[in-house]
Amino acid sequence: MIEIKKVGKHYGHFQVLSDCTTAVAQGEVVVVCGPSGSGKSTLIKCVNGLEPFQSGDIVVDGTSLAAPGIDLPRLRARVGMVFQHFELFPHMSIMENLSIAQRKVLGRSADEARERGLKLLDRVGLRTQAEKYPGQLSGGQQQRVAIARALAMDPICMLFDEPTSALDPEMINEVLDVMVELARDGMTMMCVTHEMGFARRVAHRVIFMDQGRIVEDAAKEDFFGTPRSERAQLFLSKILRH
């Protein structure tokens, strides 16, 4: 579904990503972790073309991102993305947030978009909030809406960039629960997160990044059993302590 091949990216002399290679198969859940500044966000944004890269290639469902003349909006419409700070559109009601791209990008009618939106709000437990505005919801609720907004596009895979790290602790679980359910339903997911409980429950593989490189790329059992690199061990011991 997602193939990342020898991807390299630099800002001037600063190498953000070096020789990153991995793949996410259909229905697979891959967790990406690593210290702050290691390039996790950059890598995941390369997958839907929000960040350009200078070398290598990324192929999403057969479409190469390095190909000249690639139709990025078309690709992005099929790849859902959830951000650390939710990024709901504050001037639109929850329902408008869910329907704007369905209508403008997929060409669905207002009624179709609304119906699909309500179904997804149901799924994240927020059907009654449809007419509210983002500023009237809690952080956890906003992030659930953001997930529903991405799902409303019927994506072939979902990208998450630290979806719970901006949340108050008591709201983290309501978002993780939605993500766990999504994973169990067979959604292909690439999640940047430090929630190792989530990784243990649903991840198939864990990728560990450091200084722009994929240092470890292992099945979940192997990663939590005996990570091969010292840096991954050190990182794990640090984040598992609290």
Binding site: L50, G80, L88, F89
Partner: peptide
């Protein structure tokens, strides 16, 4: 992040500005 959120949904850059 607002611009990225618009683009990530498949809106074009002009649509993202507009909406």
């Amino acid at each position: 992040g607002q611009k990225n959120a618009g683009l990530a949904l498949g809106l074009t850059l002009p649509q993202t500005y507009r909406h």
